[in-house]
Design a protein around this nucleic acid. Structure first.
Lengths: 183, 183
DNA sequence: CGCAACATGTAAGCGGTTACATGATTAC
DNA sequence: GTAATCATGTAACCGCTTACATGTTGCG
């Protein structure tokens, strides 16, 4: 499943422009499937070339023209095919965890900075999820609610783990051999 | 931070061949930073070209020759530089969650299959973490222990969320408008 | 006899990121 | 004036995945 397929899925819910889809990627899909304009616009062009979406030009006054895409019958069929994968992947690519593996080569200040930035990003996601929950949950399909809950559960687990275990990264670095005498 | 840098970090702990590093990627790094031979061997060549690692040919009887790499002073310096990034990324790419967003277009059987496969993979990771904990935790740096704990915390959260919320994906699909009358 | 483990590599291709390019309106 | 929002796109590049290519030993 690539950006094309996700765009197609988004369009199965109603027509939209590339700009609209980008906003949807930022708000609800961003935490598990990021995409920028450089992926979205070519994806929509390719979908149109394959006849999976139809494109309607909408001239606007004062603003640039919109290209509004809507899914076709063929596109719907194709989407159902893509959803047949019995074991879709779920991959993490974490420079953060890779960095932490080598924390013994870093200064305590560096470690704290890295942890703080990770905590901050996690907190931002938690806040975003809270907003989505209060404003849009009634418009969501059950699947989207499930995915939102998944994001929340993981983000909360990460947040709690970071705060309760970050001290582990400093122990044994400062006083590795001084453990014997007075506790 | 790319595969090259992670290889360099692994070598900062002792010399190893590409084959050895692959095994390390599979066991302890795989859950957050995957890499195959097609990434590792070119990465080692490039590191050697840049003088960040030294390569020693070790002929073996009956087995193919090994190329044993060890980090150089220049390589150590470079690694420290790479660890200076104050906000290393942590990205998820989940076809699984994308698929679940469109679960209303799937049959209940398809949904169950997908969830089962995700539960199974999560359980495998939990088992792997348990093994790593019992066999190798004493050889780990504090950072590696922290990362192992992170993986466990997230995997446990995912496992529990999947089992306690998977039913949400079936509600409202079967009986969306029948809610009014009986309990 | 076949498969797994040991061991290293290349080449093509794909998909996504980043930077570049354009341009009007509105709000501060 | 200057930043943000609206709106679309291209092109180069980068890094990773996949498939291909080779060859031995030992186990069942």
């Amino acid at each position: 499943m690539d950006v094309k397929t996700v765009c197609l899925g988004m369009l199965s819910d109603g027509e939209a422009s590339g700009y609209d889809l980008k906003k949807e990627f930022e708000s609800s899909f961003g935490h598990f499937f990021a995409a920028g304009y450089g992926s979205i616009y070519p994806a929509l062009s390719a979908l149109a070339d394959d006849g999976l979406v139809a494109c309607e030009h909408v001239p606007q006054e004062g603003k640039p023209d919109r290209k509004v895409y809507s899914i076709t019958a063929k596109g719907r069929e194709h989407l159902l095919g893509a959803l047949e994968d019995p074991a879709p992947s779920h991959r993490i690519r974490s420079e953060f965890l890779a960095t932490m593996c080598f924390s013994h080569l870093m200064t305590p200040e560096q470690i704290e900075t890295v942890l703080d930035s990770r905590v901050a990003e996690t907190a931002e996601y938690i806040e975003l999820f809270r907003e989505l929950e209060t404003c849009c949950i009634q418009d969501m399909h059950p699947g989207e609610r499930f995915v939102l809950g998944f994001g929340k559960a993981v983000a909360n687990a990460v947040f709690e783990y970071l705060e309760t275990h970050r001290h582990l990264l400093h122990e044994a670095d400062t006083a590795p051999a001084r453990r014997s005498a007075g506790g």
